[in-house]
């Protein structure tokens, strides 16, 4: 259960900060630019500057730094794995040998770079969802995808699927906790035993979870039908997205920084 509480990816922290108030499209585009930056830079200075950019945005968003960093925890395993693979699988000058494992200088550098990239990637994208409510986020995606409808991209359907998926993450997390507690009350143990034992102990959680997910999907479909849902055709909006001068300024600033840092470092 502790695991569940640490997932900050996809979570939204309501706020009134300048970052919260930006148009979701601005934030989505800025996030993409930032991700592009991470793949352009090839020096530690570059990553440090990227991290600095993020840090400033986190400060502006007034979300506690500790809370943002918590998003890394669930992905710790992947991070450590990446680090190890690069450390020991890269050919080059050997600087340390433990039994058959050879740590090379090139591996050390590449591993650290990949991990910096990964961590910044996680923080950068979780910052988007932390400061943008899921509804605004999907509105933004739908609006950005609209021009591609001509070539057959189902913009509205994709956005609706995302809205529903995001909407149900907290519900499913809550449901999982409830089912876990109920099975723990019957003496289930999810924490001890070997990996096979633990995998098997998940069955009493997964089956009820799937059953209830299907039931919810069914109920939701009926509820949507009952309220006359017929796709995005001719839909008017209650919340109209507004791209203001502030958004333009923010986007130009981020783009400028990305170009500067991306091509210089």
């Amino acid at each position: 259960m502790a695991m569940m509480k640490n997932i900050t990816i996809g979570q939204y922290v309501p706020g009134e900060s300048i970052v919260h108030q930006l148009d979701p499209r601005t934030k989505i585009l800025a996030t993409f630019l930032f991700i592009a930056l991470l793949f352009l830079v090839e020096t530690f200075t570059g990553y440090a500057l990227g991290a600095l950019m993020l840090f400033v945005i986190v400060l502006l968003s007034r979300i506690p730094v500790k809370f943002v960093l918590r998003g890394i925890r669930p992905l710790m395993f992947i991070i450590v794995l990446t680090l190890c693979l690069h450390f020991f699988m890269t050919e080059g000058r050997v600087i340390l040998q433990i039994w058959f494992l050879k740590l090379t200088y090139e591996g050390l550098i590449r591993g650290l770079m990949m991990v910096s990239r990964l961590i910044l990637l996680i923080i950068g994208s979780s910052l988007l969802t932390l400061t943008t409510s899921p509804i605004l986020l999907t509105d933004g995606i739908e609006s950005l995808l609209k021009p591609f409808r001509a070539v057959g991209v189902p913009a509205h359907e994709l956005a609706m699927m995302m809205t529903i998926a995001l909407r149900f993450i907290p519900t499913l997390v809550e449901e999982t906790e409830k089912i876990m507690k109920a099975q723990m009350a019957r003496g289930a143990d999810f924490e001890s035993g070997n990996i096979f034992h633990r995998a098997k102990s998940l069955i009493p959680i997964l089956i009820p979870l799937f059953v209830s997910a299907f039931r919810r999907a069914d109920e939701l479909a009926v509820a949507m039908e009952a309220r006359g849902y017929r796709g995005g055709e001719g839909r008017t909006r209650f919340r109209v997205l507004k791209f203001t001068r502030r958004d333009a300024a923010a986007l130009i600033l981020v783009a400028g920084l990305v170009i500067l840092v991306g091509f210089c470092f």
Binding site: E175, K178, A182, Q183, G187, I205, V211, S212
Partner: peptide
């Protein structure tokens, strides 16, 4: 805790949702 949970049984709200 397992022996505590044996002594103090707990039926949750909508317990049928935990059937597997």
């Amino acid at each position: 805790l397992r022996s505590i949970r044996q002594k103090v049984g707990m039926v949750f709200q909508y317990p049928e949702y935990q059937l597997f």
